[in-house]
């Protein structure tokens, strides 16, 4: 008894939830992000000068894809765990012969699958539409993975702590969306006047967006190593926090 089979089935269950609800879990965020690319990029793009030598509609693609993906990871993990806690069917998993690390990892698989489906769909649409290309696929893959670990883990923690579903959306509206908008998804922070440019450097999403942008364009506002380093320095403790909750059973078990 190693729990490996259990991990596989929990991962499969989380994937099933994503595919069974695919219009909500994948289609809706893809449509929303495409609207941003179309409205902001193609209509405003003709009136906004280039950023860093890139046409505006190309410049915004990496940030929008990043935001769609990390939000999906957060939303997926928080809602699946909140529902499982609320209906108490999480007990079927907590009582099963699985190690806490397997339970945590299994719950993360749904968010990963959903985010990757969204990311690939957006890429497939944005490439022909805007002509954006991927210069450094390895950097892109590492940056996306770290972003998904960070926001997936935050979603897990939120799903474990939430008392109501509103608690989960509160975090999105009060923390995640503002940080995303101020993190340079729609502009280069170099365009900001002081002190806003300097303040942006305290925003973790700024580094994530820059790392992903570096993967796409091969250039970004700050060093790619700094971007990846900051994102990793946040992702690892966030994952450790979610793991601590599964291992100790705090909030999951009375």
């Amino acid at each position: 008894m190693s729990g490996a089979q259990g991990l596989r089935w929990l991962a499969r269950r989380e994937t099933l939830r994503v595919t069974r609800l695919w219009t909500q879990t994948v289609l809706a965020p893809v449509v929303a992000s495409m609207l941003f690319i179309l409205v902001f990029g193609l209509s405003l793009g003709s009136r906004i000068r280039e950023i860093g030598g890139l046409p505006y509609e190309v410049f915004i693609v990496p940030g929008l894809i990043t935001m769609a993906m990390v939000q999906a990871a957060y939303n997926n993990n928080s809602s699946t765990i909140f529902q499982a806690r609320n209906d108490r069917y999480i007990n079927d998993v907590l009582s099963a012969p699985m190690h806490p690390w397997q339970v945590n990892l299994g719950y993360n698989v749904g968010g990963l699958v959903r985010s990757l489906a969204i990311g690939l769909a957006l890429l497939a649409l944005a490439v022909p539409l805007t002509g954006v290309g991927v210069e450094k696929p390895l950097v892109l893959a590492v940056a996306v993975l770290l972003g998904l670990v960070l926001f997936g883990a935050l979603g897990t923690v939120a799903g474990i702590f939430a008392n109501t579903f509103d608690n989960i959306t509160f975090v999105v509206n009060i923390v995640i969306l503002p940080l995303a908008f101020l993190g340079g998804v729609f502009y280069s922070v170099e365009m900001l006047p002081s002190p806003w440019e300097e303040l942006s450097h305290f925003n973790p999403v700024f580094y994530l967006v820059n790392a992903v942008r570096h993967g796409f364009f091969g250039t970004s506002d700050v060093s790619v190593w700094l971007s990846l380093g900051v994102t990793a320095a946040l992702a690892l403790p966030a994952y450790a926090w979610s793991q601590y909750l599964f291992t100790s059973g705090r909030r999951l078990k009375a």
Partner: peptide, 16 residues
Amino acid sequence: DRFLTVEETLVYHGGY
């Protein structure tokens, strides 16, 4: 589990 059918409820539990 509200996302699963009767059969899936049993099969997934067996898997866990």
